[in-house]
Write a protein that binds this DNA or RNA. Sequence first.
DNA 1: CTTCAGTAGAAAAACGATTAACTAAGGTAA
DNA 2: TTACCTTAGTTAATCGTTTTTCTACTGAAG
Lengths: 344, 344
Amino acid sequence: MSAGPLPTIHEVARLAGVSVATVSKTLNRSGKVSELLQERVNAAARKLGYAPHASARSLRSGATRILGLLVADLANPYFLKLVESIERLSSAAGYSVILCNSAEDPEREERHLAMLLSQRADGAIVIPTRRGWSGRQAALANLPMPGILVDRRIEGLDLDSVTTDNLALGRLAAEHLDDLGHRRIAVIMGSPEHQIARHRLDGLRSGLAARGITLDERLIEKDNFSEAAGHAAAMRLLRGAQRPTAIFATNNHLSLGLLRAIAESGLTIPDDLSIIAVDEPPWAGLVRPGMTVVTQPFEAIAQTTISTLLSRISEGRAGVEDEARSIQLQPALVVRGSTAAIRT
Amino acid sequence: MSAGPLPTIHEVARLAGVSVATVSKTLNRSGKVSELLQERVNAAARKLGYAPHASARSLRSGATRILGLLVADLANPYFLKLVESIERLSSAAGYSVILCNSAEDPEREERHLAMLLSQRADGAIVIPTRRGWSGRQAALANLPMPGILVDRRIEGLDLDSVTTDNLALGRLAAEHLDDLGHRRIAVIMGSPEHQIARHRLDGLRSGLAARGITLDERLIEKDNFSEAAGHAAAMRLLRGAQRPTAIFATNNHLSLGLLRAIAESGLTIPDDLSIIAVDEPPWAGLVRPGMTVVTQPFEAIAQTTISTLLSRISEGRAGVEDEARSIQLQPALVVRGSTAAIRT
DNA sequence: CTTCAGTAGAAAAACGATTAACTAAGGTAA
DNA sequence: TTACCTTAGTTAATCGTTTTTCTACTGAAG
């Protein structure tokens, strides 16, 4: 609230008694400028509080040093962790992040993508919505800047992606539950149309199958990914004729619903029921005696995402038509008290 | 991944057979252009997939349609809700949001502020870190663009701000606890150097005083705002000689620590202890039988913030030196099962 | 003494939009 | 008919950088 118009490079040049070219070269450490003039320029810039005009610079240089981060669901703590890490890494690499939340709405996703295009972001990091609009494939494939999908892949789309190995994730859960002797295992899987949910379920199923156990299909709860759906599914399972001895919830919203249902029903973990969830939401510490989870390596995912994207950006039009990289990172099992051997 | 360089306004003009000025006027609905030419221009733009170059536009017009959002702590669910709302409202108003997380680190705050300056954001929304760096007051006061503080105010700084009335918040808690007959009331307040914490405590104290009750100063736990600190403080209170009948935790991290301590100690809410917290974190539903809280009106805060900021932006250099607005919004008490009348 | 290389710095041309100033054409009024 | 408005378009200046090209100067070699 105050201060007149900002100084331009011309005023710095005038104060330092040099040309604008010299100022530019000094400030960007490009080209040759004598020590003496460098000092004069820096002093002048400091004195005036000069801050280069990013738009002018981008217009001329063609790079904005802006990354677009388009997230499907900011309310999911796992995505939030990704956002935090990505923001930190981008900032450290000298990039600013334009944050967009599509809130699982394809229309908002589309509008945001168009905006990022207008802004000429140097790259786009996209956690896509579960259901796309009609032209999404094309819109993403024809993105004029490097783009990368995170967490969720889109089938048949030739774009870099970094995801968790969700089959392995399901298998980890399977092996752990089998080790504890569980046989009546339920899954709250979310929407069966969603690839991630299917993979986690398939991983569980195949992990169990490898141990000679068949997953009871009647104990697979399918609906959407909301907390309410998780709660309702859990209630059905807990009240069902044959209550499962273990429940696997495949996402944060679902597991929160599950935990709420358990709290309401007065059951004791892990005596009455073992539960295993995905990721570590902030509230994991509230579950006594600790929550067993399969975690996704969010920090590694963020790092891989940024480094892949930045290298694509620096390749520029050079390393053209190098085909898309699909990177899968491994989840890890963290055993705590919410799972236990079944009573015999 | 593909697609050559993007079309410019010149190519649209050439395809439509008109001048660039006509294209610009058509696309911006400024100036007079005949129906016929408008259609030709729009068709050409659509055909080429033209997207105006934001940097070029900003350079010429002086406005970037970018807002900076500098948040002190992305991990706090309350701030996250603010971020979500602000992003949604900004986007609806045609502004993009550059998200910066200072993570309570003054250095990062400073760097981000400098970056927003370089980007020439049209406005800055700042949730400042708790402790500033030496030149912060000046840096914020001399911000060349409109700025607004959210949630936390900085004393002696002439800048618009939108905050919760934290004295009222404390008073709401006081009145509720008094209504239930509580006398041994503890507070996990966080750092006493932090204005918000002091206000909430003062509100509680004065609210109780108005009912003729004196707050026992020995039951005020002071430390920092981390979950660990909340947990430790709760442990001290629960193990103390005279266990309080009610605990007031003044922030999300602290209340999570408190809940964890209660879970570990095996106490029953609200029979053994009443608790009242601030805001509704996602995990509030896990507390049986529901968590009594004083909530901050985050949606109203976001709306007020955006509308105030946008009006400052449109005032421009016109409404100069209109003095800073300090807007306080009212919290609300939401009574659930975690507070109950004390047993007599 | 002349010529040539090498170097530090300046001048000027972009980048892609907006917009003020201008022009041509058509319509009115005197 | 002439002078004058209006209207619809065009031309060209401009925003603040980066970067290519150009100039002037220095010192060395012939």
